[in-house]
């Protein structure tokens, strides 16, 4: 039996949500950590996608190249993130809005560089053969490609949360997120923590880029498409809240795909935007919040 008309958007949306989650995961980490929106996060995603392409130039067998590309993309995008943190972002503490604009500039430059290095229509990333089939669950056929995205997101979430919870670095990150000044006075080097956070967050964008390249190929504009939905997910989920980010990503993904199913893709975007605004009316702090004491 084929997937029902009403179920199809649900699966589609879940896969889209998983992709959004991958894109939002790193953003949520860096935003939660430093209160800084990195607008070049989308371009780090793009870097991950191009990294997948480059890996395929070396390892032709696509069945093998994608598993190799994932850690490579993580590392490459992570290094770009680290570079950004060290050269620019660390100079701009306590100016979060300005940081946002500076990273807009960085994003512009990265986009243009990608446009000049790679052909303007983008380069293809071959899907491994083992992603072509469908899997029969509960009487429905589920495309493997979508299941793969969902699985990848699940693995990343699990790895990230285990890392945050069980390693000492992870604990330091969480301490810094909750109270930077206190963490500093209790001997945590917030500088190191910031850098590591940025590396990890940007690396996750790279992983998201590999997943995105399997679905939509590559092009220099691809990051720009993801940054805003990813941010909306972070906002709706609540800053620094993994649980919230997951739920919000899934909800936005599914909502987008139902809207697109009922109307058109572009109207769906407008509707999703309105949805997030309405949601922020009800819960301005997002789904989950850490209670802190401040004047604001």
């Amino acid at each position: 039996m084929h997937v029902d008309a009403l179920i199809a958007p649900l699966l589609n949306g879940s896969a889209q949500g998983a992709l959004l989650l991958l894109a939002a995961l790193g953003l949520s980490l860096t935003f939660g950590q430093m209160g800084v929106i990195n607008m070049a996060h989308g371009e780090f995603l793009m870097i991950g996608a191009f990294a997948a392409y480059l890996v395929q130039q070396v390892i032709v067998a696509s069945g093998l190249s994608i598993p190799v590309a994932l850690p490579v993309a993580f590392g490459v995008a992570g290094l770009f993130g680290l570079l950004l943190e060290v050269t620019i972002i660390q100079r701009m503490y306590r100016r979060p809005l300005d940081t946002l604009l500076v990273t807009v500039g960085v994003g512009l430059i990265l986009q243009q560089a990608a446009l000049q290095i790679f052909p303007s229509q983008g380069v293809p990333v071959e899907k491994p053969a083992w992603l072509d089939g469908q899997l029969n669950i509960l009487g429905y056929e589920w495309p493997l490609r979508q299941l793969f995205t969902i699985l990848l997101a699940a693995v990343c979430v699990a790895a990230l949360s285990a890392w945050l919870k069980h390693t000492s670095f992870g604990r330091r990150i969480r301490a810094t997120v909750q109270n930077r000044d206190l963490a500093e006075t209790s001997g945590i080097s917030t500088r190191t923590v910031d850098r590591l956070t940025f590396f990890t967050g940007s690396g996750l964008a790279g992983v998201a880029g590999v997943a995105a390249s399997l679905i939509g190929g590559t092009n220099s504009q691809m990051g720009a498409q993801y940054i805003i939905p990813a941010f909306l997910v972070v906002a709706a989920g609540g800053i620094g809240q993994l649980k919230g980010t997951i739920i919000a990503a899934w909800a936005v993904g599914v909502a987008l795909s139902y809207f697109a199913y009922w109307t058109t893709g572009s109207l769906a975007q407008v509707l999703a935007f309105i949805l997030v605004i309405v949601f922020l009316q009800l819960r301005p702090q997002g789904l989950f919040t850490v209670r802190t004491r401040s004047l604001a």
Binding site: I88, V102, G105, V106, L108, I109, Q112, Q116
Partner: peptide, 16 residues
């Protein structure tokens, strides 16, 4: 191409 680079740099240099 050059203009996009200039624009990007403008954001970085001016704001920074």
């Amino acid at each position: 191409e050059g203009w996009t680079y200039i624009l990007g740099l403008l954001f970085i240099v001016v704001i920074l």
